[in-house]
Design a protein around this nucleic acid. Structure first.
Lengths: 349, 349
DNA sequence: CTGAAAGCGCTTACAG
DNA sequence: CTGAAAGCGCTTACAG
């Protein structure tokens, strides 16, 4: 009963031919019966299916793929699956894929361009039906590779969503960023800092753009010392916030590129003996689950990560069924007000 | 240049035959040249490879798999990829797999037994070379399915690692739990609570076992009101901690099933206006990255998540190359002392 | 309704 | 060193 795996691997799996022999029909008929084709007599079909079930038969997706030239498979390439934003997006992709009987290959590039190229190449060899690239920082570097590929690709929050790639889904960075800054202005803040992400090519500049234009429109002079850059992680948030805290005149509020950066900023502020939001207000971006559990709970811009993942898969599915409209979808962010932002000192709520 | 995907999909990919025609050799020779077989003349091999490169040829892994009956693929099934513990484990698996040119299928069961069964079945049809199941809660339910499978499986922190499954890698729950409780005892705590996970079949009972036996050995009477159960998430930690805080006599320290539970406990304590660790000490389990950024930073038991993932893949690799030793690996946890635990009131450090 | 035949894109003995 | 042949496990016209 408990044979060793290598012993077992010697035993050949049952194929359609074996079932055919047992059922006394041709393997064509078995194939049809298993596909529930109406072309085969009901009783024989039943019998065949029963025999298949009893013998633990499992059709070979690889053989099927070879003839149909569809693998019902997609490749997902991420910069880091350990990044909570990415993990939630992948959960959404996977869920949608699963519902449509697609399997997903996951590849973590670790933000290494070479590895990303290698991985995309391996997806080509696996003959995936489509690819989704999530939050890649290096997209531009392998653009030529992608553009010559014969596989539909959809980019999700990619740093280089432009030109040659027809299909992308992106958070509406500028508007989302503006809503965060408008909220801060409404609370009475006038000295608002921005902690960006030095690796976020387009998303950082868009979020920064929203920050700057909103400040401009409010008639506030741009103060370059209030703009610093982290790395999108908590440690980068700590460092960046420390630089801000060394300023002769502190900001009363800080808008962060993402929640992890905000978590770091929170820590740096605490380390200096200051309090959020009484001394400094903080606003994040993403709305990770942990944003509800920071101290204080984080006011942030929500990205519908799970839905964005599903959407990416839906776009892919549409492309796969032949639709060929160019798809560049912008998803709105939503400001989630919690407790990390409040009016600055001396201003009533 | 920018043809539509469906137009493109009509254009057949180059096959080994196309290359053969261009190179004026047989497809057998092309196959050999591409595999860098020493059997083929060096100059012809060079020429063939060049032609292949120029024509953007990509070998079909599916065709190759059909003949070699190896897919160089593995399936990873997880309860939830959005769980930070799981995500880090998967990162480790993926990294090790990548280094050995394996591709990984990821399936998220959402802790749904039916889905888990469906997914494992699809992995069988895809002819994955191996499967790793991570932190499954429902393993027992599909034990029969697994045991009749012809594919090697390794279980990682599975709730039912026993009997029929030869290969598993597990954190040393009992010892890790004991080290946490011993630390708390050394700090002077005598009234120590435990917030478990009602879904953690074996890991919860093992961690509880470590808790209880260490208390016993210290001569402390077991107080059942000090043991409550969450769901492994922050919300469950909040609820459970609230129940503890309603006790007529509060615990001075709480050992939590995992870090997310601890994060919830931290929040519940803060909501009651109490402080950690001055009023109550908290110890977690996992050492997620966020454990460094809670307020206060969390004292916790580290699981080497990334390494455990790599290890799982290594075991699989070993099984695939024929080794057939039963592998049940126990990985030690490590107590990471930060700031969420301190001597109870009235006891000097 | 059923079967024989061809073919998907490779690998690999077998013969030269 | 090279090619013709067989075969991996399926699907699907084509003929009956």
């Amino acid at each position: 009963m408990n044979q060793s795996p290598n012993l077992r691997s010697v035993i050949k799996r049952a194929s359609i031919k074996d079932i055919a022999r047992l059922a006394n029909v041709s393997h064509s008929t078995v194939s049809r019966a298993l596909q529930r084709s109406p072309l085969v007599n009901f009783k024989t079909a039943e019998k065949i299916r029963q025999i298949a079930a009893e013998s633990g038969y499992r059709p070979s997706a690889v053989a099927r793929s070879l003839v149909t030239s569809r693998t019902h498979t997609l490749g997902v390439v991420v910069t880091s699956i350990a990044d909570p934003f990415v993990a939630e997006v992948v959960a959404g992709i996977e869920e949608e894929a699963n519902e449509h009987d697609y399997s997903v290959f996951l590849a973590d590039s670790n933000a290494d361009p070479d590895r990303e190229v290698k991985v995309v190449r391996s997806f080509e060899e696996r003959r995936v039906d489509g690819i989704v690239v999530t939050a890649s920082r290096v997209g531009a570097l392998y653009a030529p590779l992608l553009s010559e590929m014969q596989i539909p690709i959809v980019l999700l929050n990619n740093q280089h969503p432009g030109g040659e790639f027809a299909h992308s889904i992106m958070i509406a960075n500028v508007d989302a960023s503006r809503s965060a800054i408008q909220y801060l202005l409404k609370l009475g803040h006038r000295r608002i800092a921005y902690i960006g992400d030095r690796f976020g090519y387009s998303s950082d500049s868009e979020r920064f753009g929203g920050y700057r234009s909103t400040l401009d429109e409010a008639g506030l002079a741009f103060a370059s010392e209030l703009v610093v850059h982290g790395n999108g992680k908590a440690e980068g948030g700590v460092e960046s916030m420390e630089r801000l805290l060394d300023l002769p005149s502190l900001p009363t509020a800080v808008f962060c590129y993402n929640d992890m950066t905000a978590v770091g900023a929170l820590r740096a502020i605490r380390n200096r003996g200051l309090r959020v939001p009484q001394d400094i207000s903080i606003v994040g971006f993403d709305d990770l689950v942990l944003a509800q559990y920071t101290d204080p709970p984080l006011t942030t811009v929500r990205q519908p990560k799970h839905d964005m993942g599903r959407l990416a898969m839906q776009v892919l599915l549409k492309l796969l069924t032949g639709a060929d409209t160019e798809q560049k979808i912008k998803v709105p962010g939503e400001l989630i007000v919690r407790e990390s932002a409040a009016p600055p000192k001396g201003v009533k709520a």
